[in-house]
Design a protein around this nucleic acid. Structure first.
Length: 131
DNA sequence: GCATTGACGAAGG
DNA sequence: CCCTTCGCCAATG
């Protein structure tokens, strides 16, 4: 995977690369990180954003996830929740239940759209991956 | 080209 | 402790 992409300002391409060119650095990095989330663990947008260098850009992570739906190797976006451990993005999946279904299959209990023991399930790329 | 929004988060009131 | 505001960056209207 790519090392910390400090320079996220890759507005080089104003248009979506139709070629096999990689997506925007930020997005790619998000994908890379998300793909490395161990089974049964979850992380937050903010954690990823922080890992990327800007904890303020958590929203962009979510945006990246949106594009993740188009990402080739499917990105386990279901393992990414907000800081409360709430499946805030469940509505963006095929079905509203897909997200928690997948999480449950991973061994993560979901109750009321929230990850149970989120704190324990939390996987911080800055710590675990600690690149 | 400006204004609004978005799968977020932290800080302030 | 609940609610509001601001910040971040990119996409969309």
């Amino acid at each position: 995977m790519k090392k910390k992409v400090t320079v996220v300002k890759s507005r080089a391409k104003k248009e979506m690369p139709k070629n096999t060119l990689k997506e925007y650095s930020f997005f790619v990095d998000v994908y890379e990180v998300v793909r490395q989330i161990p089974k049964g663990r979850v992380t937050s947008y903010g954690a990823i954003a922080a890992y990327l260098g800007s904890r303020l850009s958590a929203r962009m992570v979510g945006w990246a996830m949106n594009a993740a739906g188009s990402a080739k190797p499917k990105v386990p976006a279901q393992r990414v929740v907000n800081r409360n451990g709430i499946l805030s993005g469940k509505h963006h999946f095929s079905t509203p239940t897909f997200m928690e279904e997948q999480l449950k299959k991973d061994g993560v209990n979901v109750k009321n759209d929230t990850v149970v023991d989120f704190k324990k399930r939390f996987w911080d790329p800055s710590t675990e991956l600690a690149l």
